[in-house]
Amino acid sequence: MTMTTLFAALFYLAALLFSVGLIYRIRDYARTPAPLVIPTTPAPRTVGGVAMRMAREVFFFESLFKGNLWTWAFGWLFHVGLALVLLRHLRYFIDPVWDWVIFIQPFGIYAGLVMVAGLAGLWARRIFVDRVRFISTPSDHLMLALIIAIALSGLFMKFVSHTDVIAVKNFFIGLLHFNLQALPSDGILYAHLSMIATLMIIFPFSKLLHAPGLFFSPSRNQADNSRDKRHLSAWAAKLESGK
């Protein structure tokens, strides 16, 4: 029971830090003014066009595709795999499980493999391409190691040593209702869960901020309409009234 309490506490803490940290960051980005119109042109002239540009960046990594095909391929596979895996894991948090979540279960398994392949490719580039090696910090390697370890421990429980998924589900549903249920005592599961909690905790303090950051990137989210619409930030407007 002590491990159950420990993990419950860990996940409450991780969820708190993750959400509060992320909300704080997003509010900070949203409140920081963008005084000048700086879209990387040619850029869409309308808000609808900007939404399309952003959607292509979010779903297809358009700029990265132009930049480097290998990085794009590995990165895109990893992110798509991760998205499917996360959706697959919804079954641990909802009851009864939605039909489409049941439908994607088998794909989620392949996605786990694809995700590891993508991460391995990204790591190989970090090690073997001299330019990327030069810019890599220890935390860049550790981040890859952490996510690969999370994926491998998850796949291990799927393919090698099953854990009691019903009990895991009861544990998480219990967490959502502040009603503690026993977590199966399973070393691999402990490893899997503690690494996930770690990832959640470091998210708002690390380069994982690229996820919200993209939406606030002025070179991507601004419309190219500077001659038709006067764009003035609050601090820049003050200079004017001082005149």
Binding site: Y29, T32, P33, T71, V132, I135, K207, G213, F216, S217
Partner: peptide, 22 residues
């Protein structure tokens, strides 16, 4: 950092992917 959203976001968002490196 408090006056330019570009500067603030660009300090945080880089993942060292290397797409720009060449």
């Amino acid at each position: 950092l408090s006056k330019y959203r570009s500067f603030k976001v660009y300090m945080d968002a880089c993942v060292h992917c290397g797409a720009c490196s060449d």
